[in-house]
């Protein structure tokens, strides 16, 4: 059960501003979905290993070569999508 406090906490963790109206709107649907997910409790997973990667792949590396797998962008390319920029930097809001 996701409480209003839970919702505020996960909203904060995921940096999603939620209005009171949003919280009212989201709560019941999130909880009905979570209720549904609860069915997994029926499954006996004692001794079962989790599957993080579906293929048994190991040891995939790249060599330490400049431009080997990816090439650097120019500064202009790097900043081409920046909503705000200054003197070759991305411009972000103040910290405090």
């Amino acid at each position: 059960m996701i409480t209003k406090e839970d919702l505020e906490h996960i909203g904060w963790l995921s940096r999603l501003e939620l209005s009171d109206e949003d919280k009212e709107k989201y709560s019941p649907k999130l909880n009905s979905i979570l209720d549904y997910f609860g069915e997994l409790n029926e499954v006996d997973t004692e001794g079962v290993e989790p599957t993080y990667h579906v293929l048994p792949l190991y040891n995939v590396f790249r060599e330490d070569e400049v431009g080997g797998t990816t090439t650097s962008l120019t500064q202009d390319e790097a900043l081409s999508n920046a909503p705000r920029k200054q003197d070759g930097f991305f411009k972000a809001p103040r910290m405090m």
Binding site: V60, F61, E63, D64, T70, T71, L73, A78, L79, G88
Partner: peptide, 25 residues
Amino acid sequence: PPNSHVCPVCLGLPGSMPVINKKAV
């Protein structure tokens, strides 16, 4: 200069993927 040694991967552009440097390991 700033942002002159970046690519889709280290800039975190959508769709980019990391591959580990063998020498780092």
